[in-house]
Design a protein around this nucleic acid. Sequence first.
DNA 1: CGTCCAGTTGACTATAGTCAAACACCGTGG
DNA 2: CCACGGTGTTTGACTATAGTCAACTGGACG
Lengths: 251, 251
Amino acid sequence: MNQILPKNDRRVGCRECPLNLNPCFRSFTAEELAFMEDFKTGEILVGAGSTILSEGHLSPNLYTVLSGWAFRYKTLEDGRRQVLNYLLPGDLIGLQGTVMGEMEHSVEALTSITLCVFPRDRLMELYAKHPTLGFDVTWLSSREERMLDEHLLSLGRRSALERAAYLLAFLHARAGTTIYPSNSTNYIPITQTHVADTLGLSIVHTNKTIKRLMERGAIRWLGGACEVLDAEKLSKIAGWHGLDERVRPLL
Amino acid sequence: MNQILPKNDRRVGCRECPLNLNPCFRSFTAEELAFMEDFKTGEILVGAGSTILSEGHLSPNLYTVLSGWAFRYKTLEDGRRQVLNYLLPGDLIGLQGTVMGEMEHSVEALTSITLCVFPRDRLMELYAKHPTLGFDVTWLSSREERMLDEHLLSLGRRSALERAAYLLAFLHARAGTTIYPSNSTNYIPITQTHVADTLGLSIVHTNKTIKRLMERGAIRWLGGACEVLDAEKLSKIAGWHGLDERVRPLL
DNA sequence: CGTCCAGTTGACTATAGTCAAACACCGTGG
DNA sequence: CCACGGTGTTTGACTATAGTCAACTGGACG
């Protein structure tokens, strides 16, 4: 198993943070920025395939994804796994642990990924000193909720083909604002096993479904990654109207 | 169609609010209570089957459920419906509208239901004046997220029988802290169509699945309602370990 | 008495899962 | 150099699960 490689040497100040410069995130006020610089305790680099958080465990930290891909999942006792959502730059990890104590899901890195580290026990201080930042945390939580709502609709009421099309269109849209702009490649770094565990299908049936999407010229599959050729076509197959990703907050 | 019956005559002060007296909710400080009394603009009584919020629309208000049952759902364009979650006393309705503007799901009353009304445009004031209450909003949002995670696991990886058992155990557990203590009946007020739209199954197959749960003596079905006879058995069938419902915040 | 709604049932079809066998690719170590 | 195992993907044959269609029950209500 891969391990987390600690790297608490505090690379980037929030001022120079590439995410903070990305126009899809709202910019901090001077006071907020000063607080965040102090709130941030460091950075961590995690290798592809490593576990970032695991179900049933406590974590003293909150994280924001700075670069790379990860996913959240839960498992049943007999090993059946369900991917709940994917994490991309700007996403907050571990908020649920604040409410529950123990995590009720695990988080695993899909690519190598860098995380911004915050101490969970200072979160209340953030609410007290910067209500707008507190509100932003709620905003992000609510945004996650919206994504889960759409995933539920997908699992419950979309066919296998629609579900696959939705998932790939969704990930392509999400990466479009944060990953692809600063990257030469624009692939989605997942295996068909991940797709299967997200869609609630078997690997075999997932493979046959992906094949149908390829035959329609919507995507291309490259061992361990997917290239979206026609995002419009995917959205149309899925009956999905895309993300409403206006400017959003960042922690 | 039923309509919302306005009743803004401000029935109960927050001080005498039965929910505030329920030990499963954390109690307000004197300052918080004063703020909430001012923040609350009134109460609304909604009849069973009425739509409380609807997809694509704006709402100037946030609500807290005071009594009764409701559910959130989304639909695809061809009418396929997915129930996302159920709303019980103490649950916040409409938070997502704050983030998105338009609602991305609808909310419908399952029984007649009373709602506490808050003006959405004063929400930021709540964060500014009472950081602990702001944190509570995040807490509630995060709790909703946890429930959705479990529902996703259910839809994606549980069999029809397991899913049905999980749903009924879940609703029974949720009602156990807020509905049943103050009520003579302890039924879950849903039809098999609701169950089908929650589990992502057809009505026919749902009916056959429910029948199996009845044969095992876990539940009884009474036109338009379900009585849980053996919650333990349901949890065991579902492989579900129950809610971790410690003391939680209330707005 | 007829209508509507919720629930029930059986026959048949469609969708998805399971089992099994391969292939391609990529490292490792002899 | 090549044999080896591992992962990711592909395919076909067969089975299981769930959906569709259709008919029917029973109760509530005007």
